[in-house]
Computed example of a mutant assay.
Amino acid sequence: MHHASIRTADIHRAIAFYEQLGFEMCERFTAGMTLACWMKGLGGRIELLQVPQPRPAADAFGDEHYTGYYHLSFDLTDMIDDLSDWLASLKIQFAQASETGKTQPLTILLEPTQQIIGDRVYEVAFVADADGLPLEFIRMMGTVKNF
């Protein structure tokens, strides 16, 4: 996949949020009259597009009847050893950044939990981005046979 595109109400707020996650700016550009950028991080690339007259996003995480794109998922298996520790550190980082006005405190949608998919055991957590869109962070812990 080349990138995932995210429409945002405030591109500067969204950039600050994704920078806290470790993303870096690649390109700034306009799409028509809309501000836009590409950012790289966590093994992928996103495109942020500012919406001129934004409406609130659908509650893709909380509305069990919502249909459409659900979330972006970032595989942290090769980057971290423990999802709970990583998320705790991220909470502190966002809290400190919010004190300076760079971003809002981190909103956790789902604390790290184990999930079995096929024969693999994963740690899974969800947070909300600057516009409330769900982001999943996943780390493979091993196979069912190893547990």
Rank of each mutant, 00 (worst) to 15 (best):
V127W: 02
E47H: 10
R120K: 14
T100Q: 13
I11G: 01
S84L: 05
Q53P: 00
W86K: 02
A128D: 03
A16C: 13
T100W: 07
D119G: 05
L106E: 01
A14R: 02
S98V: 04
M79E: 14
I6R: 03
V121W: 04
E99K: 07
P56E: 15
D10R: 09
Q93H: 15
E123C: 07
Q96M: 12
T77I: 13
V121C: 12
V124K: 05
K91T: 12
D85Y: 05
S73R: 12
D63F: 02
L135P: 00
T143A: 14
F17Q: 01
Y70G: 07
G43M: 10
D129M: 03
G22R: 04
A4W: 11
R28C: 10
I138Q: 07
G101W: 09
R7V: 10
F61M: 07
E136Q: 13
Q114T: 13
S73I: 07
E64W: 06
F29E: 09
L83P: 00
T34S: 15
M39A: 10
M1Y: 09
V124N: 03
H3R: 11
S98R: 02
E19G: 06
G62L: 10
P56A: 15
L42A: 09
T30R: 11
G68A: 06
K91Q: 14
T67V: 15
Q104M: 09
F74D: 08
E111K: 05
G118L: 06
Q115S: 11
A88M: 11
T77C: 12
L133A: 05
T113N: 00
V51D: 07
T143M: 13
F23K: 05
H12W: 10
L106S: 00
T113D: 01
G43A: 10
A97R: 04
K91V: 13
A95W: 04
M79T: 13
W86R: 02
P105H: 07
A130E: 06
G43N: 08
A88L: 13
V144T: 15
A16W: 11
P112T: 10
I15W: 04
E24G: 12
Q115F: 05
H71K: 07
R139S: 03
G43R: 09
S5L: 12
D85F: 08
T67I: 14
E64T: 10
V127I: 14
I116E: 09
L42P: 01
T30A: 06
Y18W: 07
P134S: 08
T34A: 15
R55E: 15
A60V: 07
E47I: 08
I46L: 15
Q20C: 13
L21R: 04
Y70E: 11
E47F: 02
F17V: 03
I80Y: 03
A9Q: 03
E99G: 08
A88R: 12
T113A: 09
T100G: 07
